[in-house]
Design a binder for these strands. Structure first.
Lengths: 264, 264
DNA sequence: TCGAATTTGTGCGTATGTATT
DNA sequence: AAATACATACGCACAAATTCG
């Protein structure tokens, strides 16, 4: 491994007085030296996951090379999946993706904790509304029937990772609104109403661009799609408990299905 | 059901001489008459799935009502999922959604036929290429190792529904390229190499906006996300056979997870 | 809704060093 | 030694995407 004069990965700017430069004639291509240098900065945490790399022009200046040379280095790192390049925005250190395991009987906090992050959440709204046809069909009630809708933002280490709507038929759970207000979690509220356990029966996944409020709440770009998952939760007798609609920001969250992992 | 004077759903334009109009004072709200009329046009195929409705202004003129009245009718249909409204583009007759069942041990043609459509496909490319790191890891070979990549466009009733890349380790299947050329399907090619059966082990779903070629091949808008599914296929001994990367156009295709449906 | 500024993407031409023939 | 091919590197111009006012 050829070393390279430190080009100043330091946080403070205005380091132009002592710019690093790539070593010419060292027998190692400049772009390889640069790729290695950035790779090292990522490995030792100088460049944190999700952080933005300096622009190509800036890197070219720092290493005293042409922009093409920098591009080639970044191209290599992108091919390895270490950085992610976005036209018009910049290049970013690849982030850990949160895998959302569909097959597991997941509660939000369990999911987040399994990935060694700290779960938190914010209830956005709780209201009784008439059921639109698709949701009514899923819940097995009449279109327009009374339904409680809870909207909630889920965070991992303080970063939003899910925006979910939970729908409960009021006819089946008359006390659901009060229970949801009283208890901190949905499973606790349902437990107080006699639903000891429940699990996912179907999950249906699509994707679309976020609406402005969704993008703001999930702290994502308007041009980056959301994964939209609809699911039906049933109790141990197979009766429908809840219809859920969750939105996850890509590429921070992926949905994973692993048949045979149900036992876990 | 109230009938309405035909407002001219005919294909040819310039029908302004005999515009239909909603019946006032009939005891049925104008917007309900209009909604019913459009619904009928959809039901009898006059407005085909995916077709664009006339603009709200145009409909208002045809029915001789205010645009708000038309909007109310469309709103009703949108709530029912019969039409899809897109700001800045127009309103469209909802298309049938193809459910892609992840849990099933699916072959492309089986999937399409199960939805009563006619499957077809087009091989786009077949080449031996070095494996980028993520794929190499999935296949259990070294980064840069030789790998055969088959790219294929899948169609249902002539409309593109999937764009898939299939990757096979050349070390494990030396004759794979020839087999894929010789046989029409992947499963037939693998069978000729001794892989009697194989099935999905993990499926990982994300979403992103399409690249221009992807949008063109899948006949979708550049602003409508693709569902991107990566999956690892293994044989009956659990050995990795293939790494697949499939792209599906939303909202034409949804991905469905239904644990417990594996038996099917 | 629009344009300006920023940033990455692409194409072309040129030059140079290294390895192969 | 000369010819050829290839990888590397630079310079310039413009296209395309994003962001922001």
């Amino acid at each position: 491994m050829t070393t390279l004069v430190g080009p100043g990965w330091s946080a403070r700017a205005g380091d132009e007085t002592t710019p690093g430069a790539a070593i010419r004639g060292s027998g190692v291509a400049l772009w390889r030296q640069i790729a290695g240098d950035i790779e090292r900065a990522i490995a030792d945490g100088t460049l944190a996951p999700g952080a933005r790399l300096p622009t190509e022009a800036e890197l070219a200046q720092r290493y005293a090379v042409n922009r093409h040379t920098v591009r080639r280095a970044i191209e290599e790192l992108a091919r390895d999946g270490q950085v992610r390049v976005e036209q018009g925005r910049g290049s970013f250190v690849a982030e850990d993706v949160l895998d959302y395991e569909v097959s597991a009987r997941t509660r939000f906090s369990e999911w987040i904790r399994r990935h060694d992050r700290e779960p938190s959440g914010r209830m956005l709204s709780l209201a009784t509304v008439p059921a639109p046809r698709p949701i009514a069909e899923a819940l097995g009630i009449e279109t327009g029937g009374a339904m409680v809708r809870l909207e909630r933002l889920g965070l991992a280490d303080g970063r939003p990772v899910s925006l979910a709507q939970h729908h409960f038929a009021l006819g089946r759970f008359p006390g659901i609104a009060a229970a949801l207000s009283a208890h901190g979690t949905i499973s606790a509220a349902l437990a107080s109403l006699g639903v000891a356990d429940y699990f996912r029966r179907v999950t249906r996944v699509s994707a679309r661009l976020p609406r402005p409020e969704e993008a703001a709440l999930l702290e994502t770009s308007r041009s980056r799609p959301l994964l939209v998952a609809e699911n039906i939760n049933v109790d141990t007798q197979g009766r429908v408990v809840e219809f859920g609609l969750s939105r996850y920001p890509t590429p921070r969250v992926q949905i994973v299905f692993e048949p045979g992992a149900e036992a876990a």
